[in-house]
């Protein structure tokens, strides 16, 4: 009994340490974003400023002069469009494909799956110039549609992998029973497999969203204006231009991180069950 209590205390201490190591850098970024610039550049650093300064958020939300606010807001909109679009397409396409991998027997099944997964090993630089030309001839350069198009190619293999593993853990009997009742395969997929695969689907959504939100190199090369530039590109320009106004970079960074953090927190509990059942075993 005594040993168990001691272990529990040790575990709690360790958890605290981990939480602090994780929260400290992030927390400092939050504090820095509302610390006046003159305090940020004093040495020795004053950790808690004497006054708070929310002007950077005001600049980002309402500022228009010289583009900081406008660019940021446009980039936020673009990122949301690109991430949501990519997630939607990848999920629909991925669910269909994953069902085939998990439930159907066909020739080259393993080879095809490996081929999909192997695309992950291609570095993006290997594709940049030809892709640029394709997008240009389709008039998709500097458009969110074009980015969704190329991002899907990055995200779909992941979705296929997570979902097909999860689908395989759903007992066949469920589906067979439905099909004996006269439901088609597609019907079974929608009414039987999908509801049972909810954790796997949520896990896939989270992965897809984080991947699409984080994508940088394609956005860097294929977009240039407020019409399609995404947040990672906007932040990298931001950071290049206001190198020592760390507060402004921090404020932008926090806002850029908010959507994925919210998504991750909401879906986080499904990720464990979603992957535990299938993906990781695969």
């Amino acid at each position: 009994m005594k040993r168990a209590t001691r272990n529990s205390i040790l575990i709690h201490i360790a958890a605290w340490v981990v939480a602090i190591v994780i929260l400290a850098p992030f927390g400092w970024m939050v504090v820095a974003s509302i610390t006046p610039q003159r305090v940020l550049i004093t040495t020795p650093l004053q950790w808690i400023p004497d006054s708070w300064d929310f002007s950077r958020y005001v600049t980002i939300f309402s500022g228009g002069s010289d583009g900081v606010g406008t660019t940021f807001r446009a980039a936020m909109g673009n990122s949301i469009v690109v991430a949501v679009g990519t997630v939607l397409i990848s999920m629909v396409v991925g669910i269909l494909g994953a069902y085939a991998f998990a439930r159907l027997r066909f020739r080259f099944r393993r080879a095809v799956l490996i081929l999909f997964l192997a695309t992950y090993m291609l570095p993006q630089i290997a594709l940049l110039i030809p892709l640029y030309l394709i997008l240009n001839s389709l008039e998709l350069l500097d458009t969110t549609t074009g980015l969704i198009f190329v991002d899907c190619a990055l995200v779909i293999p992941f979705v296929l992998w997570i979902l097909s593993n999860y689908f395989m853990t759903i007992p066949d009997e469920l589906e067979e029973a439905a099909r004996i009742d006269g439901t088609t395969r597609m019907g079974a997929l929608f009414y039987v497999v999908l509801p049972a695969a909810r954790p796997g689907i949520f896990a896939a959504i989270m992965f897809a969203f984080l991947l699409a939100w984080d994508e940088f190199m394609y956005a860097l090369i294929f977009t240039s204006s407020d019409a399609a530039k995404t947040l990672p590109v906007a932040i990298s320009e931001f950071a290049g231009r206001y190198t020592t106004d760390f507060g402004l970079v921090a404020a932008g960074g926090i806002l850029a991180a908010l959507p994925p953090i919210i998504v991750a927190i909401i879906f986080q509990r499904y990720v464990v069950s979603g992957m535990a059942a299938g993906a990781v075993k695969g």
């Binding site: 583009g67 940049l128 110039i129 640029y132 030309l133 240009n136 001839s137 350069l141 500097d142 860097l220 090369i221 240039s224 204006s225 990298s236 320009e237 290049g240 231009r241």
Partner: peptide
């Protein structure tokens, strides 16, 4: 005229990658 602004660090590579397309 439709202006586009990029950071100096990204300018050279942008001119190069956009060259074949005449963007």
């Amino acid at each position: 005229v439709k202006p586009t602004f990029v950071a100096y660090e990204a300018l050279h590579d942008k001119i190069v990658t956009s060259a074949p397309a005449g963007t």
